[in-house]
Nucleic acid binder design. Structure first.
Lengths: 145, 145
DNA sequence: ACATTTGTAGCAGTAACTGTTACAAAACTA
DNA sequence: TAGTTTTGTAACAGTTACTGCTACAAATGT
């Protein structure tokens, strides 16, 4: 799976904002340096996070980005959904043969399974807050729910 | 995410084998027709399933593939691991800056989170058997654990 | 006016997966 | 033994998605 790094980077970005943005707006350039990527990649990601009402950005000379709410009030599921990394597994590319009893009905079963797995991921992620992540980063202890 | 269809196709293939292979070995060509893809794609997948001891194949004129154990004895986690669809989300491509306190420690936090999510998926999948899938396909009822 | 920063379009490079052809190896049939 | 069938595997083209980059308009403060 050529799965996306967006969720990982989003957590990284938000952790930086949680740690520093209460004092001043943080520039995409500075975030990019910590993440070790291009500033445009960060700005693209920040657009998604803005749409999810997790951060606010401001243009101009003194511009930058800050968290829109307290790190305790942001859970990892919100972040996950904000960057919409798609499903855990993909369904058939080509529609299965409708002549085969199995092919005819498997799609609906797989679709339900997909949602089922998605739900357990959500249940897990919702228990962790951005503040928990920051604590784990600062103390070196693992998160536990 | 360009995620793989392999898990979905694997379930499809195994459901066909569960339904039909007790009577005779099933050819990759016939499976491919139901899945609506090329026979080589199916054979590649069957190789993985063989390595996981889920199916047995035989070359030659009367060859084909059949399940290696009863559909009740195969759970979806075994199938998921057999086709190893990678992780739910990817970690950073480029190593984060080790000069930034967040960048320095985030990788280990994310890695733990990855394993954490992987574990809940496993817990969920392990509760469903291939027989459950076949029942859902044949009755139209959704699987519940 | 000028400098700075976000927002966004557009493109190249990379990586992964699917689909296809081709053919060797194995196993049965006659 | 010769011929047929099927798996196993290599090799390659096409597609898709993501990342990284350049460029520039729009906004904002000095």
């Amino acid at each position: 799976m050529a799965s996306s790094t967006q969720f990982a980077v989003a957590i990284h970005v938000l952790a930086i904002l949680a740690k520093y943005s209460s004092e001043e707006m943080i520039k995409s350039e500075d975030i990019a340096e910590s993440v070790n990527t291009n500033a445009v990649v960060i700005r693209r990601l920040l657009c998604n996070l803005q749409q999810a009402n997790l951060v606010v950005s401001q243009k101009g000379a003194t511009g930058g980005t800050r968290l829109m709410k307290d790190a305790k009030e942001i859970n990892l599921n919100e972040i996950y959904r904000a960057v919409s990394p798609g499903d855990v597994f993909a369904l058939h590319r080509q529609k299965p043969s409708q002549n085969c009893p199995v092919g005819k009905n498997i799609e609906s079963v797989l679709c339900h399974l997909q949602k089922d797995i998605d739900a357990v991921i959500e249940e897990k992620l919702i228990r962790y807050s951005l503040a928990d992540v920051l604590t784990a980063i600062e103390t070196g202890k693992t998160m536990s729910n």
